[in-house]
């Protein structure tokens, strides 16, 4: 029971992370096509300004909680996916640095370099998360000792790549909508236009991914066993449709919220489909890391549950407050501030 609660929390942390850092990923990915001039670019940077670092902590926490609650899953996942995880790490390093360094030297060439890293630092993680999670859904070649028998190229299979494209589009829409919330004028119109353009692509990718999931993975087994769980894929489709509705009616904020629900449902759909495995093995189901063979001791799970139950709501409360303080549209005044990115 305790292990199952932790499994759900594990999924929840990933979902929150994707909702929050997802829009940063999307804005960075769209930076080269959405921005026409320096003011546009700086608006996009500052639209993520007060948020991206706090968002990234959800990844650190998701990683830390995996370590604490499912040490074996953490150990096997990180060592098996050695190359992609280090690529993710370097991408995140360059993203952070591009925020901080870009405006520190007054030279167009310098800024251009960091714009490239801002793009890569957001696009690459979005893609990698998609590829990685799709491969997890399918199962990865790990043996009974947690040794990985694949390589980087094996992760780039058809289903993995489809997952990558799907995640990039999902976050791109999320980022376009956030950009719309935070900007005015031409940039705002362009952001909403992008959202409108991305939406049908995302719909296609989502449908293709759901269909391919039935072919390549066993995720649906859990849903057939416990049909009420189907609420997540159904809600995912519904929220994707309402996202389109709100884009059409120019309610960008509502569209962003609906897309956030979509991201949560997609994450839950995948994670709950894997239950009870955190790391399914494609070599033999007996080699999978599950909540039964991968969890921490009951004492640790109880202590960590207490910590999470008390502190995560507090974190959510103060982060929500910070979002409410900084949801305003970026103005020239904001860009003139000496601390602005």
């Amino acid at each position: 029971m305790l292990e199952t609660i932790w499994f759900v929390l594990w999924g929840l942390l990933w979902a929150v992370y994707f909702v929050l850092d997802g829009f940063d990923f999307g804005m960075g990915t769209l930076l080269p096509i959405a921005a026409r001039n320096e003011a546009d670019r700086r608006t996009i940077y500052n639209a993520a300004g007060p948020f991206w670092d706090g968002n990234e902590v959800w990844l650190i926490t998701a990683g830390g909680v995996t370590f604490a609650a499912f040490p074996k899953a953490y150990a096997v996942m990180f060592s098996a996916l050695y190359a992609p995880l280090l690529m993710l790490l370097f991408a995140l390093i360059f993203r952070a640095v591009s925020f901080e360094f870009r405006n520190k030297i007054d030279s167009p060439g310098w800024r251009k370099v960091w714009d490239v890293f801002q793009f890569l630092g957001n696009f690459v993680p979005a893609l990698l998360f998609g590829v990685a999670f799709a491969n997890l859904f399918m199962g990865i070649p790990i043996d009974g000792n947690g040794v990985y028998h694949g390589n980087l190229l094996k992760l780039l299979n058809l289903y993995g790549l489809l997952g990558g494209v799907f995640f990039v589009l999902m976050f791109a829409l999320h980022g376009a909508l956030w950009m719309g919330i935070k900007s005015t004028g031409d940039l705002h119109d362009r952001a909403v236009g992008l959202a409108r353009g991305i939406w049908p692509l995302l719909l296609c990718a989502a449908v293709a991914f759901l269909a391919a999931t039935a072919v390549y993975t066993n995720l649906y087994v859990n849903y057939l066993k416990l049909p009420p769980l189907l609420v997540f894929p159904i809600l995912a489709v519904a929220s994707l449709l309402t996202t389109r509705f709100f884009i059409a009616s120019n309610s960008v904020g509502m569209a962003w919220v609906c897309n956030a629900v979509f991201i949560v449902c997609v994450t839950f759909f995948g994670v709950f489909g894997m239950y009870p495995a955190l790391l399914p093995s494609s070599m033999d189901p007996a080699f999978s890391v599950t909540i039964a063979n991968g969890a921490s001791s009951p004492l640790t799970l109880k202590i960590m549950l207490t910590v999470v139950v008390i502190f995560v709501p507090i974190v959510l409360a103060y982060q929500a407050w910070v979002y409410s303080v900084f949801t305003h549209k970026i103005t020239d005044e904001d860009l003139e501030d000496e601390h602005a990115y």
């Binding site: 926490t61 830390g64 995996t66 370590f67 953490y74 921490s296 502190f311």
Partner: peptide, 10 residues
């Protein structure tokens, strides 16, 4: 792992 997770959360 718990100590690291608590560090992140708190």
């Amino acid at each position: 792992g718990s100590l690291l997770a608590i560090e992140a959360t708190l």
